[in-house]
Design a protein around this nucleic acid. Structure first.
Lengths: 184, 184
DNA sequence: ACTACTTTACCGGCTGGACGGTAAAGTAAC
DNA sequence: GTTACTTTACCGTCCAGCCGGTAAAGTAGT
């Protein structure tokens, strides 16, 4: 970490980043082992050394994105002084923020069609959020609506419908904020 | 058309139905021309006579689903005595109803990854809904939240996360109903 | 410090199967 | 005999995963 210290990126990291790049650029169907290997400047054999199958690669991508989302949410939660509904608001913030709007999701959802089991990674996170809500004593229905609306917003972004709802977006966000403060 | 009148289903219809069946059963990746042809008991050439490409087939599936959704929504709208927010409520009802929860969507979204342009079919419907809202004088933010939450609910179903939110579902629906009655 | 062996990391050609699509021939109704 | 529909047979491409090989970096016994 002294100066000049190039990222000592491992091959594995390089490959993962290349995979994100490829899927953003070429879509889910463009995500082939050859393409990723080329982008990462590794041979296909090398790629398969680090990720024994395509599914393993996609799984790692999924985990990576979920972690990034979780990190963004945690950050938002820590910065929030009000305990009630802190977790939902963090979820909302993360969804509305950079990670939530990343183009990476779009294609990755497409890739999910290939390996439906990978939704479980997601499911676990959703579950954890609901548990947190309950502990915070927030009105469960309100919390659910906030989360679901955030998901809907996310979806509209993924499907490229976000311009359609762009006008009301700020107001929606404000309303959800308010709802997140209602106790049960 | 006398009695006993089996569906005089055209080959085209048979093929479309077979396609839905296959995609429900085998997922987006299982939707191959061969599989659909086999299921419809037509030869592959026969299939391609009616749908000149796979994209044409998927497009027809998309249109069919959107029409079914639209029909369900229209029905709900007509049965609704209160004019304000009628369209949003219809949207909500359709989403929460049979068509909205159909497993067909699941895989079809996956197939969208193959032909991203097909989202436009969708987009048109979304736009039409927003226009209707405006004419009804409903609070736009409330309307948006209702719609987006419905989408979130739909998404949770598609991703198989619906059991997770099953408990709050009725309450959420009730709240949304209420919101749909707020004037602008 | 030299040798023998193992592990880690990586290369790249190959293959076998799947899949979208084509084309020509056949059938039957009108 | 022409139109509408259907079949059979085939082609070309793409791609995941496999596999034989290599080279450098440990590890350890002597």
């Amino acid at each position: 970490m002294v100066h000049g210290h190039e990222a000592p990126r491992t091959s594995r990291q390089r490959i993962l980043e290349a995979a994100y790049l490829v899927i953003e650029r070429d879509g889910a169907t463009g995500l082939t082992l050859d393409a990723v290997a080329a982008e990462a400047e590794v041979s296909k054999g090398g790629l398969l050394y680090h990720f024994p199958s395509k599914e393993a690669l996609v799984s790692a991508m999924m985990v990576g994105l979920c972690e990034a989302f979780g990190a963004a949410a945690s950050e938002a939660a820590e910065a929030d002084p009000e305990p009630v509904g802190r977790t939902v608001r963090a979820y909302l913030a993360a969804s509305a923020g950079e990670v939530g709007r990343s183009r990476r999701w779009l294609a990755l959802v497409g890739a999910l069609a290939l390996y439906p089991e990978l939704v479980d990674i997601w499911r676990a996170d959703v579950l954890a959020g609901l548990v947190a809500d309950e502990e915070e004593g927030i009105d469960p229905a309100a919390a659910a609506i906030v989360r679901l609306t955030a998901d809907g917003l996310w979806l509209s972004g993924v499907l490229g419908l976000s311009e359609v709802v762009a006008d009301v977006r700020p107001q929606v966000l404000k309303r959800l904020e308010e709802m997140s403060r209602s106790r049960s």
